[in-house]
Design a protein around this nucleic acid. Structure first.
Lengths: 140, 140
DNA sequence: CCTACATCCTCTAGCGACTAGAGGTGCAAG
DNA sequence: CTTGCACCTCTAGTCGCTAGAGGATGTAGG
């Protein structure tokens, strides 16, 4: 059993060193054993767990949701209904966010296209910001 | 000249009362004059400014970008090149974010569709999270 | 004029999810 | 043995607000 340092764990999982310590501090990752000199010594399982967390974070899951997903992973005999519900909720969020960003994109495009590159008093960017009534889409 | 209270300013601009005070504290809004009893008394121009800020925030501009946009608005004889650049940068960001969210949506859909609603050890949600190699899209 | 009540004031602390930095210790190579 | 990197703990900062305490002011009704 070779010891995995925090740096090594970070490299292999793609989670930064301070973030690994942070995850430990909030109880997302069990505190690993320590070397003689008080340095953390991780197991391969910890690296998988970190990679799991990282992937879930990249998908935009909140720490609390990840906490739930991890307890599910820890006990594979449970029903996966909660995992399913969490993922579905996230999907709805993402779809909502995409729709809102599309509307936003449209508005930004109007602003940018309308800019005559002259002085501010003819600039559509400033004008549209100042007067919401000029928006095409009632997205907000 | 009737006095506009902070509550009235908030109502008219759509910015919440504590947020108005916050904007004043960070210098985004000039400190208004005060009544005898030390209460803020806003001008109509302040309300336009607040509405401008609100709209820009809704479009996802950061406070620092808004600060720049506001100085441009304050001096309409400047070139609008910076406003244009800020809006364009924001547009690029938004487009990038949309692309990444679309990839993410696809991945979440695979997870959710693959869930057989059985036990966790057969659940695609947990499985995909644990193994990034199963992602279809190399978006992250 | 008095009372009730909404609204205002300042100040501090908290949110999420880290990130940065200070000040110190451990460890492997040259 | 010394250099230099990686590690340790701890605190404080980031962003853009938001919540709450504890008190002052303004207004409408009786």
């Amino acid at each position: 059993m070779k010891k995995i340092t925090i740096g090594e764990a970070a490299r292999q999982s793609g989670v930064k060193v301070p973030t690994v310590r942070y995850y430990e501090s909030i109880g997302l990752l069990a505190a690993p054993s320590r070397s003689e000199g008080n340095q953390r010594s991780f197991e391969p399982a910890d690296i998988s767990r970190l990679a799991f967390i990282r992937h879930a974070r990249e998908l935009g899951f909140e720490i609390d949701a990840i906490r739930t997903l991890l307890t599910l992973q820890d006990d594979p005999h449970q029903s996966c209904a909660s995992a399913d519900a969490i993922a579905k909720a996230r999907l709805v969020e993402v779809e909502q966010r995409i729709r809102s960003l599309m509307a936003l994109k449209a508005e930004l495009e109007i602003m940018v296209e309308g800019c005559g590159h002259g002085r501010v008093d003819q600039c559509r960017v400033i004008e549209v910001l100042a007067d919401h009534g000029q928006c095409m889409h009632p997205h907000h």
